[in-house]
Every structure is written in structure tokens, then in C-alpha cells.
Computed example of a mutant assay.
Amino acid sequence: MAQKKVALACSVCGSRNYTVPASPNRKVRLEVKKYCKYCGKHTLHRETR
């Protein structure tokens, strides 16, 4: 059975660049600084559901 995944969306441009495994234990949405290839810099990426 495949694991469910959620996307990480860039807070600046809104593009969904990354996917991470969904965790039922996580109560707050994941926020990570990642590189956005569309913005060309490191920006805050938030978990989408």
C-alpha cells in the first residue's frame, strides 16, 4: 500500500515544488525553508492538505 503524501507550496509564488509523507501525528502544518526554482531563492514552504 502506498503512503499518502502532501505537497509543500512556496509562500511567495504558490508553486508546489516538494512532497513529503503525510503524518497523522502532526497537528500543525509543516513549515520549512526550501529552495524554490521558480523564485530562484530560499523561501518558506508550507504543507498543503
Rank of each mutant, 00 (worst) to 15 (best):
M1R: 13
C10Y: 00
C39P: 07
K37S: 14
K27Y: 08
K34P: 00
H42Y: 02
H45M: 07
Y18D: 02
Y18G: 03
V20I: 11
K37A: 09
R26I: 13
T43K: 08
K41M: 14
S11E: 06
L8W: 09
A7S: 12
G14Y: 02
N17K: 10
Y35H: 14
V20E: 05
Y38A: 09
L44Y: 11
N17A: 15
Y38K: 05
A9C: 04
R46Q: 12
K33M: 01
K27Q: 06
Q3P: 09
R49K: 15
L8S: 00
K41S: 12
G40N: 06
V6W: 02
T48Q: 14
A2Y: 07
C10L: 04
G14T: 04
A22D: 13
L8N: 03
K37P: 03
L30D: 01
M1V: 15
H42E: 08
H45Y: 00
C39D: 09
C36T: 02
C13E: 05
A9K: 05
H45K: 01
Q3I: 15
L44N: 12
Y35A: 08
R29P: 02
R29H: 10
K37R: 10
T43G: 01
H42R: 05
R29K: 11
H42L: 08
C13F: 04
H45Q: 00
L44P: 10
K5Y: 09
M1P: 13
C13T: 03
V28Q: 09
K4E: 14
P24Q: 03
N17L: 13
Q3W: 08
Q3S: 15
V32S: 10
K4G: 05
V6Y: 04
R29S: 07
S11D: 08
L30P: 00
V20N: 07
T19K: 03
L30G: 00
R16V: 02
S11K: 00
N25V: 07
K34F: 03
V20W: 11
A9Q: 09
T43R: 09
T19M: 04
P24E: 05
H45S: 00
T48S: 12
S11H: 03
A2V: 15
C10T: 04
A22H: 05
P21N: 11
T19G: 02
K41L: 15
L44T: 06
V12L: 10
T19L: 03
L44S: 09
H45L: 01
L44G: 05
R16M: 01
S11L: 00
C13N: 00
C13D: 05
R46P: 05
K4Q: 14
T48G: 14
K41D: 13
G40C: 11
K41W: 12
E47C: 04
R49T: 14
N17I: 13
P24A: 03
N17Q: 14
C36F: 07
R46A: 08
A22W: 11
A9E: 10
V12Y: 08
